[in-house]
């Protein structure tokens, strides 16, 4: 994966813990994030892979 830069702050994103949640369930995950403005990057393969799996599992809970 190429380097992702925050276009607003003009600094590279860094790996950081971010809380994501769905249907009342929260999980801390390691994501790339702008250390200054907190803008997060969720790559396509994560959104359509693992994340989608977890969404479906939570919907069936």
């Amino acid at each position: 994966m190429a380097r992702i830069v925050c276009a607003k702050c003009n600094i590279p994103l860094e790996k950081s813990k971010v809380t994501i949640s769905y249907l009342g369930n929260s999980f801390p995950v390691d994501l790339l994030k702008c250390p200054q403005c907190n803008l997060v990057f969720i790559p396509e393969d994560l959104a359509l892979g693992k994340m989608l799996q977890v969404e479906k599992a939570l919907e069936d809970k």
Partner: peptide, 27 residues
């Protein structure tokens, strides 16, 4: 919704789109 795009004047060229339902919270 996520959109990957480039811009030329007022025209936005859309290269990719995807989405998820998980909400992005605080760090």
């Amino acid at each position: 919704y996520w959109v990957e795009y480039t811009q030329k004047d007022n025209t936005f060229k859309i290269h990719n789109v995807y989405s998820h339902r998980m909400e992005i919270g605080e760090g």
